[in-house]
């Protein structure tokens, strides 16, 4: 039992962060505005969760210019992918155990 829960990752303990990770797991990259629209959250809220995930090395930021407009997109890192899979597994196990 203890093993199962140890995989529940504190970094993902928020619906917004779960959302960001879910989007990036199935898409090569996603830009800020599209993320905002998909998850239906405010700029500030999204930015702070992105920052947290970035600091933990779960996602990476790609800054580009499209013409003259800056365009920021995000993608999941190798670590993020592994950690998120473990987290999902832990969630599933938790449901099965109880």
């Amino acid at each position: 039992m203890k093993d199962l829960i140890s995989n529940i990752n504190k970094v993902f303990e928020s619906r917004v962060r779960l959302g960001i990770m879910s989007v990036l797991m199935v898409n090569e990259s996603y830009d800020f505005n599209s993320l905002k629209e998909t998850l239906d959250v405010t700029d500030g809220n999204l930015a702070s969760h992105i920052k947290a995930l970035e600091e933990k090395g779960m996602i990476k930021v790609n800054k580009q210019f499209i013409g003259r407009k800056p365009n920021t997109s995000y993608s999941v890192t190798e670590t993020g992918m592994t950690e998120f899979r473990l987290h999902l597994k832990a969630l599933e196990n938790l449901i099965r155990e109880q």
């Binding site: 619906r15 989007v23 996603y30 998909t38 599933e92 938790l94 449901i95």
Partner: peptide, 19 residues
């Protein structure tokens, strides 16, 4: 358990909606 189920449901929906 309920929270975990909700989480997994949300993850599935977001993965589908976003791709």
């Amino acid at each position: 358990e309920k929270e975990s189920i909700e989480d997994i449901k949300a993850i599935r929906r977001i993965m589908e909606d976003s791709s």
